[in-house]
Design a protein around this nucleic acid. Structure first.
Lengths: 220, 220
DNA sequence: GACGGCATCAGCCGATCGGCTGATGCGGCT
DNA sequence: AGCCGCATCAGCCGATCGGCTGATGCCGTC
């Protein structure tokens, strides 16, 4: 994993330019000071939310933007999508505390080049950032493991929008009949959706479905 | 508790000494560099988990330990309890990303002097740390608001250990009869526990109970 | 144009749930 | 001694759920 003899040309190449996007001042300071300790990187700027990050990246044109996923006022996923839409050359490296399935999948699908957890050690962070700058995909070991196990277990299907609607109401204690009324469909349809949800989430009943939905980040 | 030799005052000349306990290297760096920017503070050391934090605090005797709650290998709450048991004079200032009810309450009950979220701005962090060093309780505005609203709403009762046992099984899709068998009690007792759970969590059925339990940090 | 996923609906039936009205024993607090 | 929370148990009953089988229309893909 950590190769001290890795051919990392410190002064040979131009430093990797960065923008940091995180709503936590503590984390921004931490990342800045970590990258300041190496001549291979140059932090061009910091943003505290999604829109700010998009504006900054567009203006500064960094090699990589380190982006937190959960930020107030337009989350990270929307920002990633916007950057992709603008077709910037900057690579997005998601760096977050959370590792729920929905976050991970959403970020990768939106176009992130990598996904790291904040407990990543300094050197691994350097490696990953360099890799991201070159367009290589990097994932935290924990994330990789879960995605792989996810692929292996077909129990990992995605809920449709309608199924999520139903599940959200179920989590509020709404009965099938009430759900039917609220969604303007018949009770039979609600039951049908629920049967599909149980199958997809591998849950035995509505309580278990709600629980695994929370575990996977679908709810809450 | 009090150092007889310290000319303690609201703005004493001696810097406030700190130990940082967080499993995220990024956060440790961030806090260190933030506090390094002010002459009012001196960071004595860093720990990456609970036991390490306890050892370091015992050895270095800082004024304040900034502690993350969720750490591998012995979480922050246990560490706080251990520090209190050892009767150290060091104040514990919890600094975490999460603000679930159970975390907050557990930390305060364990003996934390303050509870801040990591999105706290630099200056507020300084103020809070100084306050904690003097033994004053400090809470993030968001935390305070929730605790207050919690007090006002009597809907905030605590589940008993047995009730949590039942609820945990319910979240796994276990039927009442199965729960009874697993816990060596009768089905009637399970139903009784559930009725109490519904009342305490203000939930209509088991699905809603599981959902609010997740929301309040009782599960997951 | 066939295929598959999604959303919609129907009826039947046994299993399960949740509400109701109780009761007992234990332990802690006042 | 009295009160209260907790855990334990009982029976009854209507409401709800979940499984099963099967059907239709829409839409996007191959």
């Amino acid at each position: 994993m950590t190769d001290p003899l890795a051919p990392a040309g410190p002064s040979s190449r131009r430093p990797v330019t960065l923008v940091i996007a995180d709503d936590h001042p503590v984390v921004r300071h931490g990342l800045r000071s970590i990258f300041a300790s190496s001549p291979d990187f140059a932090v061009l700027g910091e943003a505290a939310d999604g829109p700010e990050a998009v504006a900054l990246v567009t203006r500064l044109d960094p090699d990589v933007v380190l982006m937190d996923l959960r930020m107030p006022g337009g989350g990270g996923v929307e920002a990633i999508g916007e950057l992709v839409r603008r077709d910037v050359r900057t690579r997005v490296l998601v760096l977050t505390t959370y590792d729920t399935d929905s976050d991970t999948v959403a970020a990768i699908e939106a176009g992130a080049t990598g996904y790291l957890l904040k407990d990543t050690p300094r050197d691994d962070l350097f490696d990953a950032t360099r890799a991201a700058a070159e367009g290589r995909t990097v994932l935290s070991p924990a994330i990789t493991a879960r995605l792989v196990s996810r692929m292996r277990a077909p129990a990992n299907e995605t809920l449709s929008a309608r199924e999520r609607d139903v599940l959200r109401l179920v989590a509020q204690g709404t009965s099938n009949r009430e759900i039917a009324a609220l969604l303007f469909i018949s009770e039979a349809t609600v039951k049908s959706h629920l049967t599909h949800i149980y199958g997809k989430l591998n849950a035995k009943d509505r309580a278990a479905a709600v629980a695994t939905a929370y575990d996977r980040g679908i709810l809450g």
